[in-house]
Amino acid sequence: MTTENKSRFMNQAFEKLKNESQKVYDKRFSTSYKRKMTFESVLGWFALMVKYFLLYGLSFIILYPLIQQISIALRAPEDINNPLVLWIPETFSMMNFKISVIVLDYWTALKNSIMISGIVTILQILSTSLVGYAFARLKFKGQGILFGIVVASIVVAPSTIELPLKLTLMNFLGTGTSLLGSPNVLYILAATGMGIKSGIFIYLFRQFFRGIPEELEEAAHVDGANPLQVFFKVMLPNARGAMVLVGILSFVWQWNDAYFTANFVSKMNSDFATLTTKMMSIRNAIQGAIQQAGVWQLFDQDVTQNPLFTSMVLNTSAMLAMIPLLIFYLLVQKILFTEGIERSGLVG
């Protein structure tokens, strides 16, 4: 056998061995790869199903009370004891809304709620932003201790300081003048950094101001500005995000407040009430509301003693109190709310 033939034979044998090895490799590893891809596909499909299951489940849990509330509000009062009516009312009626408007003295209470919540929100923003700036930028003795007290005030129950506050307000600044029964009480508390959840707002502003470059302040100081001028002309205009977040939370919490408003204002002055405090006394006003609405003849005289009917009116009243807040959220959520959270020190 010549050298050329030997070389050709060796090449053919090598190619044959190579082809056989490739076939074995393809058969073994392609099957494993296919199995892996199939497993990953099934796993991804299963994860997607679990994700949507949890998403729809949580959505239902969140929306269930609202759907039920709307269903009850649109139900005719005579169907309250009808066991066949669960979700869709047999007879749609706006009677519950009519009775609730009278029970709440809705338009007067709405005006009071908007006035108190709006003024308190503005005062809360001014006072807590100023305190937050002081803790973030100014250096003074006892700063750490005072900030610790501010943080501790977040977890202190309002009832703990109710008595000393009332004693102070009954004899305001030793003048013998009582401020109880007037919404000015809430304005004073908000302006002095003692409003609802003021400790949280101070903390948010402190975190925000600590994130603003110090060079801005230094440039203002070089131009001869004092700390107050730096705050109002440099820091506060740059705190738009934090101001929006604090404004939204302050407005909503004051709107829903029943403790401070009832104990310091409404209980001392029955002529001044908000939607929330009106709801607290709704059980005692249902009978008069039915008579005032001119529909007493449509009900049994014992209907006001029916806890289901009372709950139905209370449910509808809660919807009427909630509608202005929903409108408020819709107006601000796309414009400023997201920016307020991102720039307030809560993320990042």
Rank of each mutant, 00 (worst) to 15 (best):
N81S: 13
L138S: 05
L336C: 12
D105P: 02
D257G: 07
V185G: 08
S32Q: 11
P237K: 02
S250C: 06
K6Q: 08
A239L: 03
T108A: 07
M243L: 13
L63D: 02
K27W: 10
L314Y: 14
L308W: 10
Q124A: 09
W87Q: 00
V150E: 10
L126F: 11
L308A: 13
I72Q: 05
R206S: 12
S178Y: 01
E15I: 13
P65T: 02
I282E: 01
L54W: 04
L216T: 04
A134I: 11
L63G: 01
I286C: 05
L320W: 02
P324F: 02
M10D: 11
T128L: 03
I125S: 08
W87Y: 11
N19G: 04
A76W: 08
F337P: 05
F208P: 01
D271K: 11
Y52Q: 09
A190T: 02
W255G: 02
K197A: 12
A73E: 01
Y329P: 06
A190C: 04
I248Q: 01
D105C: 04
G132I: 00
D271F: 09
Q292H: 05
D105K: 09
W253Q: 08
L146M: 14
K18S: 14
Q287S: 15
I282D: 00
I116Q: 00
G294C: 05
L180C: 10
L54G: 00
A262Y: 15
Y56N: 02
M243E: 01
K98H: 08
M280K: 07
A219D: 07
S71N: 05
L326P: 00
I323E: 04
A220S: 11
A293D: 07
A152C: 14
N226Y: 08
V85E: 03
F9T: 08
L325I: 13
K141M: 07
